[in-house]
Nucleic acid binder design. Sequence first.
DNA 1: CCATCATGTCTACGAGTGTAGACTCAAACA
DNA 2: TGTTTGAGTCTACACTCGTAGACATGATGG
Lengths: 196, 196
Amino acid sequence: MMDADVPRTPARRRRDAAATRQAILDAAVAAFTRHGYDGVGVREIAQSAGVTAMLINRYFGSKEQLFAEAVDVAFAPRTVIAGTGDALAGETARALAARTAPEADELGPFLLMLRSAANPSAAEIMRDAIARHAGRHLGEELSGDAAGVRAELMLALQAGVWLLRSVLATTALRDAPQEELAAHMEPLFRRLTDPQ
Amino acid sequence: MMDADVPRTPARRRRDAAATRQAILDAAVAAFTRHGYDGVGVREIAQSAGVTAMLINRYFGSKEQLFAEAVDVAFAPRTVIAGTGDALAGETARALAARTAPEADELGPFLLMLRSAANPSAAEIMRDAIARHAGRHLGEELSGDAAGVRAELMLALQAGVWLLRSVLATTALRDAPQEELAAHMEPLFRRLTDPQ
DNA sequence: CCATCATGTCTACGAGTGTAGACTCAAACA
DNA sequence: TGTTTGAGTCTACACTCGTAGACATGATGG
């Protein structure tokens, strides 16, 4: 609490390359998640990071390479599944219901994925990121026949719920109570985690 | 068999307003499905319809209103479910596996939905279309508790599979044989059609 | 045959895009 | 203290976008 500086915008750094790079990256993750790859310009990202647009090119080479790093950040630490073992299906269903609630307004890899899917270059970048992070991690958690297919079906179901409930806000899913919705989704996830 | 989907010389209409309007609408459905709302410009749509960009504004008022009509066309006649009654789950799973196959390169409402979801105006238009067509039709087919939620979960699952398998082309889903994939998805749909 | 009006085209504008190049300025090292 | 280096900014270019307004054209009714 020693910093008495009132940060009017993003905390006026004094020439710290690493911090500036990180600020741009953070702003990019938020912006791409909210508006998609094509929906946001480099000027907008730079402004919310407190710098000029050209610094993006200096630090990341291009908008596309910035997007690639942002995707890596969004997919890497985030948990795309919740819980382990027997609790996996239930936890995933409950977490999904909570995070897609209309009042949640959360960010996360699924929104980034959905809102940037239209651009072919962005799609390719995200496919690689999924293979590198989420898909692999989830594939290890599952076991048995066709673990990869079942893992990606879990991702697909989650992505679809994010799309209808959070992005499009269709009536039935938007108005469904969290517990009830989770109760409907839980057996679906269980079918994928425990394929009898 | 008619001509290819991209008419090289758009058959030189001689001043037929209705036919021109229809040609623009057809081109719009194809273009929006392939590239999304933000991914295609009115000049491109007009050219593949064999007219000038300004005719779009004359006949539809704006790009956004053209999109609204295109969404209606894409969602209305298309079947978002396959089969009825007991066969619904199995037919839907098999049709989904077939239409999302890498070599299929089909169009359809789900691709249009996914690729235009990033734009807020487009999202609102599509939410209304879903409520008007797919959601309602599917809700009638289902019965029992929370039919609306289960219907939209069916849509969500399908949308997610379209996203991962067809748009992103993730490895496991891309390489899975149709029958095997359908076998994995069928019990999921059955859980939603017959909630025991 | 000619006037008419819907049908379609042309030019242009204002705004927004990503990014290249030249610039300024602060900090670190001699 | 003077010099070098890198952090950050400014201006500008070469596009693309949606669309507004003026203009051309061809089929049709008299």
